[in-house]
Design a protein around this nucleic acid. Structure first.
Length: 205
DNA sequence: CGGCTGATCGTG
DNA sequence: ACGATCAGCCGA
């Protein structure tokens, strides 16, 4: 299991680091886990797309100042939960956008009401539903017993792609930054990437 | 307390 | 391409 120190990164480094890692959530219903294939970086008070832009710290966003490697789930559009992981710079985090299902597929299918593995977690709201993640994990430590990361060698060396972040047009120029990252050829992405990022996934601390 | 906005999803 | 649907935030 990966320990707290690996999360001591800014939003961009954390978003890239998470690619290829395995996100695990254990509940009474059982274990569900998937390989992280897509992320986005959110870089604190100077990033117009970030929830804490301009120093807007509210009860919802407090966890972004409470340490690195903490879960920041929140509800969007009144109906979907999305999961961020806090970074080592105050206000920074990375959004987990898509998983390749790995373990607990029947449980994910049950939670999602969807059969095809390709559609179980290919979006930030879908993956939270599939893993049973809701606001109850707010502030949870990602090196804990029920919500944590593992390494999996499967995608080490695969090329990474990047592109504009999704759904943040209101952020103006910041919406154009290539801060969405993913495994270039993964069929489990929420949508295709626009360009090569010029580096590969590396599985190391 | 009421109105508005939105880091989405599913269907058509 | 679009409508569903409501938590969180803001202003009054």
């Amino acid at each position: 299991m990966l320990q707290q120190d690996v999360f001591y990164k800014d939003g961009l480094a954390l978003a890239r680091f998470l690619l290829g890692k395995v996100l695990v959530h254990c509940t009474q219903e059982g274990e569900a886990a998937g390989i992280i294939v897509e992320t986005e970086a959110y870089c604190g008070e100077t990033d117009a797309a970030c929830h804490v832009y301009g120093g807007r710290i509210t009860p919802r966003t407090q966890v972004l100042y409470q340490g690195h490697g903490l879960a920041y789930p929140y509800v969007i559009y009144g109906m979907h939960t999305l999961l961020n992981i806090t970074g080592g710079v105050p206000g920074h985090c990375a959004l987990v956008r898509a998983l390749q299902p790995l373990r607990g597929v029947p449980l994910m299918q049950q939670r999602r009401g969807v059969a095809k593995p390709i559609n179980l977690a290919n979006g930030p709201g879908k993956l939270c539903c599939a893993l049973g993640i809701d606001r109850g994990v707010y502030g949870a430590e990602l090196w804990g017993k029920t919500l944590y990361l593992e390494t999996d060698g499967t995608y080490s060396g695969y090329s990474v792609g990047c592109g504009k972040r999704i759904g943040v047009e209101y952020a103006g120029e910041a919406s154009l930054y290539p801060w969405r990252f993913g495994l270039m050829d993964s069929p489990y992405l929420s949508k295709p990437l626009e360009m090569e990022a010029g580096f590969c996934v590396s599985i190391e601390k």
